[in-house]
């Protein structure tokens, strides 16, 4: 066609970088349904009998230490696993297998829920067991939009990293 190709390697590199970043930006602007309508989440099924948020944790590998559940209502706090700006927090003696932790006071939403299995009970966030609502795989860190659930119940499966 009439267009002249780019022959300079430097210009080609800049064009390539621009296409990569532009494509990434475009792909990042596509948000899944949970983003625009947090009222209907795939995980948070409203349970009419139950008030508040019920967190069902499965895959707890041992009864060592504590299961720590932290609930956030803003993206930044979730992203940094903030130990200050959370809306609710519970710690319970770990039970092998499945556990349920109730937050009857959480009736607003949307919330993002994280679970940490502090096996050595040192109260530090080291690489033991973790899970976040909406998480799809061991190395997935869901953004708040995807992690968001409404009051009702939410199920989290533990991932272990050591």
């Amino acid at each position: 066609m009439g267009l002249r190709p780019i022959t300079s390697l430097a210009v080609s590199a800049v064009v390539t970088a621009a296409l990569m970043v532009g494509g990434g930006w475009l792909a990042s602007s596509v948000r899944t349904a949970t983003d625009s309508s947090p009222k209907a989440s795939s995980q948070g099924n409203r349970d009419p009998v139950h008030e508040g948020l019920r967190v069902d944790v499965s895959g707890v590998r041992s009864e060592l230490g504590n299961i720590v559940v932290t609930v956030y209502d803003e993206a930044e706090a979730l992203a940094s696993y903030s130990t200050e700006s959370y809306v609710a927090y519970r710690s319970q003696q770990a039970v092998t297998g499945a556990m349920t932790i109730d937050f009857q006071e959480l009736t607003e939403g949307p919330y993002a829920v994280t679970v940490h299995h502090d096996e050595n009970a040192n109260w530090a966030y080291d690489d033991e067991g973790w899970s976040t609502s909406g998480q799809r795989g061991a190395y997935d860190e869901p953004p708040f939009e995807r992690a968001a659930v409404m009051p009702g119940s939410v199920s989290l499966e533990m991932f272990y990293y050591d």
Binding site: T16, L19, G23, G24, L26, A27, S28, P143
Partner: peptide, 24 residues
Amino acid sequence: LFEIETTWVSVIVCIILADLTYYW
């Protein structure tokens, strides 16, 4: 650089960009 969710749209964009990286 970006937080990209895995949707069919982002998979298609990724295929096009994977072809660009393949070219180089």
